[in-house]
Design a protein around this nucleic acid. Sequence first.
DNA 1: TGCTTCTAGGTTACCGGTAACGTAAAACAA
DNA 2: TTGTTTTACGTTACCGGTAACCTAGAAGCA
Lengths: 331, 331
Amino acid sequence: MKANLEDIARAAGVSKMTVSRVLRGGSGFSDQTREKVMDIASQLGYVPNRLAAAFGSVQAETLVGMCVPRLTSGLFGHVLDGVDRALGRLGYQLIIGANDHSMTEEEAWIRQVVSWRPAGLILSGRNHTPGTIGLLHAASIPVVEIWDLTTRPIDMAVGFSHVDCGAEMARHLLSRGRRKVGYVGALARSDVMGQARLEGCRDELARGGHPLVDAEMLHDAPGFYAGYYGLETLLSRKNDFDAVYFHNDEMAIGGLAFCQARGLRVPDDIGIAGWGGMEAASILEKRLTTTVVPTTSIGKAAAEALVAKLKGEPVQTVTFVPTRLVPGDTA
Amino acid sequence: MKANLEDIARAAGVSKMTVSRVLRGGSGFSDQTREKVMDIASQLGYVPNRLAAAFGSVQAETLVGMCVPRLTSGLFGHVLDGVDRALGRLGYQLIIGANDHSMTEEEAWIRQVVSWRPAGLILSGRNHTPGTIGLLHAASIPVVEIWDLTTRPIDMAVGFSHVDCGAEMARHLLSRGRRKVGYVGALARSDVMGQARLEGCRDELARGGHPLVDAEMLHDAPGFYAGYYGLETLLSRKNDFDAVYFHNDEMAIGGLAFCQARGLRVPDDIGIAGWGGMEAASILEKRLTTTVVPTTSIGKAAAEALVAKLKGEPVQTVTFVPTRLVPGDTA
DNA sequence: TGCTTCTAGGTTACCGGTAACGTAAAACAA
DNA sequence: TTGTTTTACGTTACCGGTAACCTAGAAGCA
């Protein structure tokens, strides 16, 4: 039913190998032979079997695995898009997985994916289980760690520093005269990158002489509701803040909604700052003060680094993709 | 370097086949043999080669392909999440691709993915090129079409009717006394599903005796900016609307921002309605009137239908997953 | 003319699993 | 005790492509 190389070969009166050469656009055959083979291939509706090709030859491995913390995050949607566009153009297929910010989940996913002998992997974050490290080392395939930069990547890294993001926002708030800053976060235990932003902010505020007043860490997903209720909780504990830094923009917008509901004037009574740079943040009646993350660029850069490595081209081990603090009307 | 079945077999003093049986948890070996094999396998750091397994046996194909219109859409992020969770639990790997609402792109993607002999495919939408249809027919693998329901699916379908969504919103607007309704859309040529909502709305309004006044179709991506400027354009042509239905929630929120900027009171001066049910829509100071789409459920249902089919269990060909019109404060 | 090189192929072995079938010994039944 | 079934394996062939190597004839060259 399904034609394979042998069927084409038989019909064309040549050998399997010649058909393989023709279909892969190699050399060592006449124009006449090529035309005949191509004709018959399309006539038989030949669909190549990449499983067989990849199995028989390392060169033909064109699967790339990518693991993100959450598929429902708007930011990672853009990263995925960047990766997919860059890879798709080059004939690679993208296998994805989500790890819920858990290193153990990540390891489990990698264990599955590695058995498909992918050409490379893209992981999110710099923290991995020892099992993961060992597995990747043993598999010896190219790996790009994105999102949170590390100077000692497993293989390659593309991203920025979450600590610096937090510190930069702290400096911005201080420069605007804010002195009593609070923080509302989410995924307290699992999201180490959000934690890094908090640390960066906390340290920089302390350095500036106006330490962080209080932080409310929720355990929920970092969405609008979490921002709304997180701010409510923070203020109920101690109602003396002149600015609040949020885990991300969605939560910050939730916080804005809470302020509106309670009649708190932003930025006069309280400043609100987010992180991530979602499109919604810039079109609100009051544009949100936030850090814009070049999501698509990171995805593109990661894919390109991976492909370069696969082609044996020289690759920069660590690629810094700068974020941009965009002062809005809210802080 | 990398151990395979044969290495384990040699070390354990048994045959390759016995090792295969043990590792797959079959039967036909003693407890003693199993323990020895398991021990040696973990000792050697054995990583199975699914490429070989899938190549040698149809049963071992555990790749599932999924094609979405855009990876950057918040809604599809949730669908992907639903699919990924359901499939991941069962040991399937998800290969994704985006087609930019283009049937030709979809065909190109399918052509690539089919060569990996996936166990099944999940496609978005009911419209496909003849080439796609032929390809899928020839490959004879399970296919689930999601998002826009059709009574004649290629194989299986999970979703709802976009025409009905539009019609339902039209009835809602009429019931609230709206008589001069406009529409602001995006991706004019390519997004047939948005087009279907427009058609449904247009027809129902006409049936109700108050036909659609005007529609502004942008060619941009359906985001906040597009909503903002789309509404501006619509109103600049003819400033006589008492409600505007948007392509989706992001655009509707952009429209709300425009109203706020121009001092238009919502819903008094003008009603605003969206579609999709993004979380942001429900936490705005004025909750957006919209149609909530059960994204995660659709993903989950699609994955489950696919797996059921793969296991040879009886499957419902068409699964209707109802949307829910949620009247907010804006229309 | 004799030698070399090139062209257009063909042959063979192999990648690492799995299905299908075969078989000796042990357990069991009559 | 003898025939039958079960258990616990082993053997063989095969999936479909590719790398590496081989070869006959043609073309080029001195």
